[in-house]
Nucleic acid binder design. Structure first.
Length: 291
DNA sequence: AACTGTTTATCAGGTG
DNA sequence: CACCTGATAAACAGTT
């Protein structure tokens, strides 16, 4: 295992998964979203190991972006021409990494099917911009069967329960589920007006991490998820549906690995969330003290 | 053509 | 042993 400050390890494979590396890159960006090429750049600049075999690892990374629900695509605006979309972290995956350390992912992040459809697929964003329905969304291959229809209450119950809300509508993206959870910059990018009270809340949840030191190529000092990626006390609970891998009650704070800040409240399912809405959850692993 | 994104498949390693 | 996660390969489609 490479140790921080040992340059002789600089060309070794970093102890981070592609998910971690991608999350690092995105969180390190000022906009909290990056095009694919900038994710490549970030990784190559900081980890010499990834300056070689680019075809191999970049294919893997793209696979991870598409495959993992923790990454969402943000379309470019017409005034931002370029290749591909921006990639951002799903607003509910802030506590994905154990103890805030990128070294270890605590739980698998999976979204509900309905949420997934509206969040993962580009046509939603086109609707988002153009205010009309895009092409019919397709479910992610892994979730296409088995969960149809039954996990919609979050969207349906928001604000105007009786009103039909297209699953691609902005209200369903930034409505109860995402309001205050997407980075401000992303909200702004999407042209969504951000009320002041939400703005302040979001800012406290998604701080700029640019001011934090960035590890050099030889320094695998763990990137830590900034404290405000955890939910603030008082902030409305987000309907994350994390699928815990396992609880690790004994781990606690590892020196240098970034600890849970005092008073931070981790993402747990809202109390109102019906048990049937949880996918394969093991509630013991969701206890805040364990996170 | 090169890049981007999706999907399927396979394998290795860790864990209960 | 079953299951899960992550890494890798590859085919393929769409976009720039």
């Amino acid at each position: 295992m490479p140790r921080p400050g040992k340059s002789s390890y600089s060309d070794q494979k970093p102890p981070y998964s592609y998910i971690s590396l991608t999350a690092m890159a995105i969180q390190n960006s000022s906009e909290k979203m990056l095009p694919l090429s900038d994710i490549y750049k970030f990784i190559m600049e900081r980890f010499p190991y990834y300056r070689e075999n680019t075809q191999r690892w970049q294919n893997s990374l793209r696979h991870n972006l598409s495959f993992n629900d923790c990454f969402i695509k943000i379309p470019r605006r017409p005034d931002q021409p370029g290749k591909g979309s921006f990639w951002a972290l799903h607003p509910d995956c802030g506590d994905m990494f154990e103890n805030g350390s990128f070294l270890r992912r605590r739980k698998r992040f999976k979204v509900l099917r309905a949420e997934h459809v509206s969040c993962k697929n580009a046509p939603m964003m086109h609707y988002f911009h153009q205010h009309h329905a895009g092409t019919k969304p397709q479910g992610h291959h892994e979730h296409a069967a088995g969960t149809v229809g039954s996990r919609l209450p979050h969207f349906q119950s928001y604000a105007q329960p009786a009103a039909f809300r297209h699953p691609f509508a902005i209200e369903n993206l930034i409505g109860r589920d995402y309001k205050g959870a997407l980075p401000l910059s992303v909200m702004h990018h999407l042209g969504y007006p951000v009320p002041a009270h939400i703005s302040s809340m979001v800012n406290s949840m998604w701080p700029h991490v640019l001011s934090e030191p960035v590890p050099t190529s030889a320094d695998y000092a763990p990137f830590s998820v900034s404290k405000s990626l955890y939910h603030n006390p008082g902030a409305p609970p987000l309907p994350a549906v994390p699928v815990p891998i396992k609880a690790t009650p004994g781990l606690g704070h590892v020196p240098g690995l970034g600890a849970l800040p005092p008073g931070a409240q981790l993402c747990a399912p809202p109390s109102s969330l019906d048990k049937s809405d949880l996918l394969e959850s093991k509630t013991s692993a969701l206890h805040p003290l364990l996170l």
